[in-house]
Design a protein around this nucleic acid. Sequence first.
DNA 1: CTAATGTCGATTGTCGACAATTTACTTGAC
DNA 2: GTCAAGTAAATTGTCGACAATCGACATTAG
Lengths: 250, 250
Amino acid sequence: MAKVHTIWTVLAVFDPADPASPPDSRFKPLSRDGLVDRVANLLAEAIMAGRILPGARLSESTIARDMGVSRAPVREAARLLESSGLVEYRTNRGFFVQTVSSEALDNLYEFRIVIERAAIARLVAQGAEATLPLLHAQLAELYRVAEAGEDMAQQVEADMQFHRLICRGSGNPRYLTVFDQIANETKLGLILIGRMYDDPHRMAETHEPIIDAIAAGDSDAAVSAIDYHIGTARTLVCQQFRLLEDKTAK
Amino acid sequence: MAKVHTIWTVLAVFDPADPASPPDSRFKPLSRDGLVDRVANLLAEAIMAGRILPGARLSESTIARDMGVSRAPVREAARLLESSGLVEYRTNRGFFVQTVSSEALDNLYEFRIVIERAAIARLVAQGAEATLPLLHAQLAELYRVAEAGEDMAQQVEADMQFHRLICRGSGNPRYLTVFDQIANETKLGLILIGRMYDDPHRMAETHEPIIDAIAAGDSDAAVSAIDYHIGTARTLVCQQFRLLEDKTAK
DNA sequence: CTAATGTCGATTGTCGACAATTTACTTGAC
DNA sequence: GTCAAGTAAATTGTCGACAATCGACATTAG
């Protein structure tokens, strides 16, 4: 898989295994992304950081003026974000930040369970030697973020990266592309809640059984572990979100 | 789920359950789609019909001239198609029809098994009363297409519609959106092969066990049936495609 | 007072033109 | 003849302008 020009690739952190970047190059491969990608990046960042709230209209002219570009790249960037689930487009009405509901979140988590179960089973089946070190590193990052008391967005990002690695290591790139799509929508919901777990350290710990099962090469245990992990998150997140909905309703 | 402005919705046949169309209106709700949607539709049709082959470059200016529009809507339409997997975009180089390989097809089918297994289980679990008649109607359509000796594209379309109904009836809209994405890419491969089964009638028959299991409310049997059905198609299609690859290689 | 209808401001939809980049070709040296 | 560099043609990237459309408010009939 060469370079894929979709927004979730843009959003993803630097991927060291990307064959497009020569490992021994002494120069940073200065961004060859066009304006569209940069605009999309900026927009996505603003949305995920919660600076633009779900349901809000994205005025093309305003954004174009603020960023100092014309409307054409803004429109294309918005279309890009649409396919990543961050933005919704209504004909003759413009782009809107995707709204989230507890029901949509629940559906999202249900679907994540389905694909991550399959991904982790495949990962174990074909050997996880290459992926395991990455998972351990990401687990360390989860702890670091927890201890350092980083903000919500960073915690969510670290967690998502962990699950992303599993999909990436599955060997079937389809798991990764689909995961990246729905991950963005999940993030949107989590940002809105404002917190994921009361105890970030505890949150990091819940990833341990998953790694253990993968390391042991126990496919069934791995599936159970990820099932439990995401299932727990699902319950918690949807519960929190329903609370939020009730509060804003009254 | 109201109206979704993504290409696979545009491509899908008229959806009688769409709440946006008042049933008692005496007027056909003349298409409110913008130029972009129509261009995307035309492009997708040309690609799926095999008039533009995988790997081919989509010249913006040529398309714009042929369709009698400017390049802006063409670009946006292409971006739309990109998210549906039909087209690939390369910076400063333009849009290309997505190439398919036997490996990619195999990954696609593997993924389809994963999500359709989950979708059909959910469908049975929550009651398939509403979906069953639709499935039966679609099965009839499969037979009709087979007997009438319709062309390849129509056979593929009829088959895909059947599976689409299962995802649609699952109750979790996510199954449908993801299915629609990957369905387009699958079609691309099937068109290239030029035939799906030697015996279209036999192909229609293989859907019977799936319906039977759903009608019986037997979740496990339904999962097994869909598993076997797609698994068989996977083997056949990938085998055919590998043959095709070998032929073009030498 | 209610509910249609008309009007206006703002925003999106589309376009043609120009700038930047890539690709194909030509030229030349070895 | 092969490879390299340089140049030209074609194509994409971006822009600003104008047309089409929408939503909100004012208006008017009942």
